[in-house]
C-alpha cells in the first residue's frame, strides 16, 4: 500500500483536484475524465483555496482503525468554495458544528502504517474564527 499512498500525496497534502475548462465544474478528488463532458471535457489540475462550508456531518464513535485514538471524531461533507464537495475530518468540538459553518483546510496527520510504517498526512478542516 506504500505506492498507493505515495501516488496521491500531492492531492491529499495540497488539496489539488480537477477543473473542467469545458463546463466549468470542479472535482475533488481529481478525475481524469469530466463526468459531464466526457470526451469533450478539458480537465486541468486545480489547487483549491481550502475554504468551504459544512453540509452534513457525523460524530463517529465506531472508528475507522487509523482514527481510533481520536474517537469520537467528526467527519463532514464539505462544499468547497469552488463548488466541489469533499468528505473530510473536521477538527472541532462536535457541539459547535452548525449546518453551513465556514471551515478551512489544515495539514494534519491521518495515521500510520503501524509503529514501523510510514506516516500518512493529509487535509483536515477546522472552523474559521
Amino acid at each position: 500500500m506504500l505506492p498507493k499512498f505515495w501516488r496521491k500525496i500531492r492531492f491529499r497534502y495540497g488539496l489539488i483536484g480537477s477543473y473542467c475548462e469545458n463546463c466549468g465544474n470542479y472535482y475533488y478528488p481529481p478525475r481524469n475524465l469530466c463526468p459531464r463532458c466526457r470526451r469533450k471535457g478539458k480537465v486541468k489540475e486545480v489547487q483549491f483555496s481550502g475554504y468551504g462550508r459544512v453540509l452534513s456531518w457525523s460524530v463517529v464513535h465506531d472508528a475507522v482503525e487509523n482514527f481510533w485514538i481520536s474517537k469520537p471524531y467528526v467527519v463532514a461533507l464539505i462544499e468547497l468554495d469552488e463548488g466541489a464537495r469533499i468528505i473530510a475530518p473536521l477538527d472541532c468540538n462536535p457541539r459547535e458544528i452548525e449546518e453551513g459553518m465556514r471551515v478551512r483546510a489544515v495539514f494534519r496527520k491521518f495515521g500510520e502504517d503501524g509503529e514501523e510504517g510510514i506516516i500518512h498526512y493529509g487535509t483536515k478542516f477546522v472552523p474559521i474564527g
Binding site: 485514538i69 481520536s70 475530518p89 477538527d91 489544515v106 495539514f107 496527520k109
Partner: peptide
C-alpha cells in the same frame, strides 16, 4: 500538540 499534530504538520502550518 493534538493527536494528529507533529513537527511536520506544525512546520507546514507555519510555512503556509
Amino acid at each position: 500538540p493534538g493527536l494528529d499534530e507533529d513537527t511536520a504538520t506544525i512546520a507546514v502550518e507555519c510555512a503556509r
